[in-house]
Amino acid sequence: MHYNLSHLDQLESEAIFIMREVASQFQKPVLLFSGGKDSIVMVHLARKAFWPAKIPFPLMHIDTGHNFDETIKFRDDLVKETGAELIVASVQESIDKGRVVEEKGPNASRNALQTVTLLDAIEEHQFDAAFGGGRRDEEKARAKERFFSHRDEFGQWDPKNQRPELWNLFNGMKQIGEHFRVFPLSNWTEMDVWQYIAKENIPIPNIYYSHKRKVVERNGMLLAVSPYITIKDTEKVEERIVRCRTVGDMTCTGVVESPAAVIEDIIQEVAAARVTERGGRADDKRSETAMEDRKRQGYF
């Protein structure tokens, strides 16, 4: 039938609807931007939602300081192109101020520290809604997330006591000091995101494509060698042809061996993948409920 939207068009329309609801229901929204593909897709959707006006909220990067150089350059170019405002909240500053203490040891990561920096920044700027790129297919605790996810005055998520979400009626009512996390990509899968990037021709950082990189194998994962990780004596640094399946903090984002040089190759690779994309994330492997525990505290 002619009057039938494809599933990707429906997902796009749903995400745009959510973004417009947030811009209208809240006083001061912000889009959490990590430089990863999901947040890049969100920026693209935000441009579409408010065009020809500019994106009516700032982007905020919670910066662990452990970035791939390519991510930062990409971020700055995107901000210039869209004319959006960029706020950088630094984990290093949280450490310097004594708000958090750096983890020790070879597996040290700033991933968990981000939560404090994020919640401090939300409080400082008085944001009342923060867009996240989380998807329900990513992880089992995320499968229970709402589109509009309530956070109490401590930024905590209470998964056992969530508001029912019916039809397309999104309840963003809250007390002063509380905020919402909003997930416009809730119903997207990893494959949907890649197909959408291909369909819309959305530029992504080149680390998503195959390149040569020095890596070290740890706990069955390949980690990119950088000044931010400590190489153990028993570990061997090798140069391999790899790409990032997700992009996050360098200390806990694994890379995968891959010859995928163009988006079509990535799509074939995702279709054949037998491991979830978060399978390459050390931050999720710390315990069975690592994601739920972090989310309860206020993580993305």
Binding site: S6, L8, M191, A198, K199, E264, A271
Partner: peptide, 10 residues
Amino acid sequence: VSTEQYLNMD
């Protein structure tokens, strides 16, 4: 996975 087919899925 053909992108063309994927884009036509409902």
